[in-house]
Design a protein around this nucleic acid. Structure first.
Lengths: 162, 162
DNA sequence: TATTGTTATACTCTATAACTATA
DNA sequence: TATAGTTATAGAGTATAACAATA
């Protein structure tokens, strides 16, 4: 358990982190803003999935997910096919062009990080990655995970607010 | 120097970090969005300063700073007094109400972090804070710091793009 | 001429609410 | 009735460019 001053300093770093994100965003292809990049990355990492699953991984509302996906579909990077098991659902899958775009994104971000973090040890990079992952877990993010006790999770929608 | 897979994982955490920021933002007072909170925090930490200095600390364009400051001034949390040394400039200073608001912000964020990070060791909190601070330094952020060699820094404006 | 700061405009990301089509 | 997904609308953050006042 840390002290108040420690927490304040941590929050200060959270706030300043936006500058890093923006700097990284500047080197991305113009046609592929952050939201699109996130969609491609998660599909590349976790494979084909439904909208609701993607929304959960992105930790944003499904309406936001829908917009990002529409943008990415319009550019031919993913395709939406109907789910035979549930006609309300759609299965998202990377197209060959999507894989190519993903490679390009990876190339650019790696290039920038190699330059900016050239004096970082491998261990420090790993440590930061792990701590940020743990932070995300500690902050829950998904509504179900915090609201419910060790119960079953049943919905991915925003719960009714009263 | 880390490997490509390490960098990709780190970028993934950068992307996911947005969820943490949003979660933290939800518990802030409605009248005080993130931009205002950042202004108050920096003024509280560094004392009175000019717009240009604040813009540098925020690592955003001065036009953005101007908007945030206008919002905060409208709520009576800071005051803009003319700089006697340079009539183009304005000195920003926290009002008593601003100090009170700052205390409230600190109280809320500390409360949330104490809850969410209750199982974190003091050392891990400190380590994450330090690594994020170092990350910010590695990413420069201010235009002058990267563009110029070990030369004097002379402008805080966006440099001409050609 | 160059710099400080403001304003107008535009774009991205996000959430809420209303809507459709299925279960 | 409840759920999957879409769309309309609104709010916050940011950048660029044009502008006013002062160095």
């Amino acid at each position: 358990m840390a002290e108040r001053a420690q927490y304040e300093e941590l929050v200060r770093q959270f706030s300043a982190f936006g500058a890093v994100k923006r700097e990284l965003g500047r080197i991305m292809p113009a046609e592929c803003p952050g939201g699109s990049a996130a969609v491609l990355t998660l599909l590349g990492r976790h494979g084909d999935m439904r909208m609701s699953k993607l929304a959960e991984l992105l930790a944003v509302d499904m309406s936001v997910t829908s917009r990002h996906v529409a943008h990415v579909v319009a550019r031919g990077w993913i395709e939406r096919s109907p789910d035979p098991a549930d006609k309300r659902s759609r299965i998202l899958r990377l197209t060959p062009a999507g894989h190519a775009q993903l490679d390009e994104l990876s190339r650019r971000t790696t290039e920038v990080l190699e330059e900016r973090l050239s004096d970082w040890s491998d261990e420090d990079v790993r440590r930061l990655t792990q701590l940020m992952a743990r932070l995300r877990e500690s902050f829950d993010c998904r509504p179900a995970a915090r609201a419910a006790p060790p119960a079953v999770e049943q919905t991915t929608r925003t719960p009714a607010s009263t």
